[in-house]
Design a protein around this nucleic acid. Structure first.
Length: 534
RNA sequence: GCCCCUGUAGCUCAGCUGGAUAGAGCAUCGGACUUCUAAUCCGACGGUCGUUGGUUCGAAUCCAACCGGGGGCGCCA
């Protein structure tokens, strides 16, 4: 890669200039301002002090040294500002980028192996098995799945997991609600009021356990709608299976053995304050029942037996639970860093500017299915992945469903459709693409062409950073940039037609193909498909 | 009271492992279709990056305090 080549050239220049100590690494960055060249390094600024040099002088010496023997693709090296070393490159470096994209393809380009096969378990959604997946789960579903895609692309062995809370009083209430509706009665006090209860109860056979049947019914529904959303889990883990396997007792025994639990007030406590929590937590209540925490600890303990790294995607209303979960894992001897809890801030759902209230009790919840029906899975996913999960999001279904300019989904999908439009046009014209090796890429010098390639060259870094920071929205931002650059190219640079030489057509066909690959990689990471025509 | 997230253009948001005049879309105003989809492109307008200090050659970015917004603090799940 060009960046490594440039960094290496700078490093050997530093050595030649007897700079001591040598910096740990030579940072190369892309200046925001194009007047500052194609690549820039701040080494002179960063290492001058330690080396006892004047930054501006050091930079000048570096520039002289580099200009004396220019690295490949470099046209000139200049000093700027307080001591930046700026590289101005010939477009040929971008032609190398094009070749790299084409050669490595959809599977190979921008797939840095930073994971080294590390096993990562991503647990998300984990809705209660008492009803359909609702809109409140959607942002976490889109985010978790995209994080999983990013990790898989960057050399991790990924498991997508859904935890099923099928133990506890809510299941009894759920079963009783189904039974009541089937008998034509009102659900019990504190039961489930949703319309789906009546619908589902109508299909419930007479001779079944309403709780077990209801769980299966809910899970089938959840699985179906999540799949329609592009989210498929590898593991559906039932809390009851923890009980059946005796893993809860095992986990408690493990904690006792480690001396991190104690009995007080008739209850059993975890000494979580020893591990960074602000208070100790009850594991077994004085009435002998388990708290919610205990099975959760056993569950995470089991996940650690199956993976090196755990990632949990939780809603903002669960953030208070993070410290105690991490404390519990520390108590079990794990590095708290090995449990990464991602908190997804809430989504305010609007419809035509009016807030949509979600209340499970009242039963007026918006199902994920409704969102998909209304705006489509692609539009919904891209919308949820538009911004950082750290900030609260407002989603107006009317806007997402609209095909207007305020909707970025169509902008991106249009770019993809136009690429296929070109392909169709080329077929009509009877033109065939010659092999890349026989194509003269040096004709690609238009600012639009160059810009497209510059953006494509950023993708490997974007993917690496997005995976590291669990930040799929970085990919969204990049995809929108690429789409923008493509629309600009499409407008100004015809691939085929009068006034376009056969050589230029060939080069541009490969350029369009590289854009298609970039778009395909980005959209796949987001779990968004793109139509070939619109 | 304590904890987490957040405050960037009229609106919605990028940018945050510190870098050189802070970006995009929408909105407003003005331009561009005889050729691959004008669902597009180009230009203009628009910002003391919540406030005050600190660290640094350099801060939207790091640190502290304060102010504003959202969420959470159960022997509930």
């Amino acid at each position: 890669m060009i960046r490594d080549d440039l960094a290496e050239a700078v490093r050997s220049a530093l050595v030649a200039l007897a700079v001591e100590p040598l910096p740990e690494q030579v940072a190369m960055e892309r200046p925001a301002n194009r007047d500052h060249g194609d690549w820039s390094s701040n080494v002179a600024l960063a290492s001058a002090k330690k080396a006892g040099r004047n930054p501006r002088e050091l930079a000048a010496q570096l520039v002289d040294h580099l200009n004396a023997d220019l690295p490949a693709h470099v046209e000139s090296v200049e000093i700027a500002g307080p001591g930046f070393v700026n590289f101005r490159l010939a477009p040929t470096w971008l032609h190398d980028v094009l070749t790299e994209v084409i050669t490595e393809g959809e599977a190979g380009y921008a797939a840095p192996d930073v994971g080294g096969g590390k096993a990562v378990n991503v647990e998300f959604v984990s809705a209660n098995p008492t009803g359909p997946v609702h809109a409140g789960h959607a942002r976490g579903a889109a985010h978790g799945d995209s994080v999983a895609r990013l990790l898989a692309r960057t050399g991790h062995k990924v498991t997508r997991e859904f935890y099923i809370n099928d133990r506890g009083v809510q299941m009894q209430l759920y079963g009783a609600s189904l039974a009541a509706r089937k008998a034509g009665e009102e659900p019990p006090e504190g039961g489930y009021q949703g319309e789906y209860i009546t619908d589902w109860a109508a299909g419930m056979p007479d001779d079944v356990d309403p709780v077990a049947w209801g769980e299966d019914r809910a899970l089938a529904d959840q699985r179906e709608v999540l799949s329609a959303f592009g989210v498929d889990f590898d593991v559906w883990y039932r809390e009851l299976s923890l009980v059946e396997a005796g893993l809860i007792e095992e986990a408690l025994a493990d904690l006792r053995e480690r001396g991190v639990v104690y009995d007080a007030d008739g209850a059993t406590w975890l000494r979580s304050t020893d591990f960074g929590d602000d208070k100790d937590r009850v594991l077994v209540k004085s009435d002998g029942e388990l708290t919610y925490l205990m099975p959760d600890i056993a569950y995470h303990r089991d996940k650690f037996s199956r993976a090196d790294q755990l990632i949990n995607i939780w809603g903002a209303d669960h953030h208070g639970y993070v410290a105690r979960m991490k404390a519990a894992m520390s108590a079990l001897g794990h590095d708290p860093e090995e449990l990464d809890v991602e908190i997804v801030q809430l989504v305010d759902l609007l419809k035509d500017g009016e807030p949509v209230k979600i209340s499970k009790r009242a039963g007026n919840l918006i199902e994920l299915r409704d969102v998909i029906d209304e705006v489509g899975a692609d539009a919904a996913r891209l919308t949820y992945l538009l911004q950082s999960i750290d900030s609260r999001q407002t989603v107006d279904l009317a806007v997402v469903a609209s095909q207007g300019m305020e909707n970025p989904v169509f902008y991106v999908q249009m770019a993809h459709a136009r690429i296929h439009g070109i392909a169709r046009r080329v077929v009509e014209a009877g033109v065939t693409r010659v092999p890349l090796a026989d194509t003269d890429l040096s004709v690609l010098v238009h600012e639009r062409e160059v810009e497209l390639l510059r953006i494509l060259s950023d993708l490997p870094d974007v993917v690496a950073i997005a995976a590291r920071d669990r930040a799929p929205h970085r990919v969204t931002t990049w995809v929108r940039e690429l789409a923008g650059a493509f629309h600009g190219f499409y407008h100004d640079c015809y691939v085929i037609g009068d006034g376009v030489s056969p050589e230029l057509t060939q080069a541009r066909l490969w350029l369009v193909e590289s854009a298609r690959i970039g778009l395909a990689i980005g959209l796949d990471l987001l779990g968004v498909s793109a139509p070939e025509s619109m």
